[in-house]
Nucleic acid binder design. Structure first.
Lengths: 215, 215
DNA sequence: TAAAGCAAACTGAACGTTCGGTCGGTATTC
DNA sequence: GAATACCGACCGAACGTTCAGTTTGCTTTA
């Protein structure tokens, strides 16, 4: 067997282990998941697991890094939306892109909560601390331009884009990861579209000539 | 010792155990916390712990019930605000009342996440499933009246009050429980006041005669 | 081409420790 | 003396981790 294939073989083992560990950590927590569970779920032996990973926490660490890479990938649809900086015109696209991410990453998102509880957020702290800066980088200049052009009212668009993003993440996380669908008492589509209307027009009623037909 | 005092004595033991368990569960998770840790942190013996609680999960269960009682107490300031149904005029009061609750309940809130991870949300599901109904009960009639009186624009005020409440809870939870202060890149006061402005006026600029002075 | 060599992949029994939970017993109070 | 509060030694099971040893498959040597 050529060397490349042998390498591929062990990479498959590692991938299997990570996949099994993700499923177990996200549904039971870190401490509640044993190396034997990971081993038998991934078809590896306990010894082999320790051949590929220095210890249990190293597996957890690698999973967090996988998530980080996925979420910061410039190719990710959500990131292409951010980079265009067309907020809030692209709110609908943002919402479906975030739903997509939450759907695709559901177990990884739960891992974040596992980290907060069992490791005091040690593995994810940096990610959240850097969030505001990443938004500043994506939107800062454009927003300052557009604000000078009178495009926004009193409202700070930077806060708005962060609120919108985090709210949508939170909403879909509760719906899809926490197992509480319809927690606002309506379908996700309805909830999201009402949320976007709220973001755009606000609660204070507008004068007659404002956009949008009353219903 | 009179009966009342003896009862009080064992109640103190139970309270100590619950307090210690809360601290441990919320900072390490359920499985990662041992009965011996709870025992030594509360000054009880392992045997005594099992005298007062049938098993470890029963301790967890009681803590969740404590939280539930606290949060649904009609005397709680946040609930007096809800019962007045003056949203969104009382947004500022709501924000500080929610900050108060999060501050007071920080460990209990983390317990919710522990439950989601380690018990599939078994102990808290009912609470979140009933949330929309509780808002309907508090705000339904008043909002329908006020809407007919033209007090709201296109925006659904029921969605707005739930978004506002959940957002503020989420925001303060990340700030105070997850250990990521200033995660929106600004002080909590600034973030909350910008959020409220966003809720009230929306992103779309208003015509000249609209309330609020431009800055 | 066949044998020898070798490093990586892999195995599973075993280690010391800790776990949740039990139980026989003592101290205290009525 | 009955009942409650409490203690801590104890149980079997499971834990994370180790390790001596086997298998595998490519490379080097003859």
């Amino acid at each position: 067997m050529p060397r490349a294939i042998q390498e591929a073989k062990s990479e498959v083992s590692i991938a299997n282990a990570l996949e099994a560990a993700l499923k177990l950590f996200s549904s039971q927590g870190f401490r509640a998941t044993s190396m034997r569970q990971i081993a038998s779920a991934s078809g590896l032996s306990v010894g082999n697991l320790y051949h590929h990973f220095t210890n249990k926490e190293a597996i957890f660490q690698q999973l967090i890094e996988q998530y980080w890479e996925y979420i910061l990938d410039p190719q990710l649809r959500l990131n292409t939306i951010f980079s265009k900086a067309e907020f809030p015109d692209d709110l609908e696209e943002m919402a479906t892109a975030i739903e997509e991410v939450v759907e695709a990453c559901a177990p990884y998102i739960l891992l974040v909560y596992v980290d907060v509880i069992e490791f005091e957020g040690r593995h994810v702290r940096a990610f959240y601390e850097g969030m505001a800066d990443r938004f500043e980088e994506a939107y800062g200049d454009r927003f300052r331009q557009r604000r000078q052009a009178g495009e926004f009212g009193d409202v700070n668009p930077m806060v708005a884009v962060m609120v919108a993003t985090r709210w949508l993440f939170y909403f879909f996380t509760v719906e899809k990861c926490f197992g509480v669908p319809m927690h606002l008492g309506m379908s996700p589509q309805k909830a999201v579209s009402e949320f976007m209307k709220l973001l755009r027009y606000g609660l204070e009623p507008r004068s007659a000539q404002a956009a949008g037909s009353p219903n």
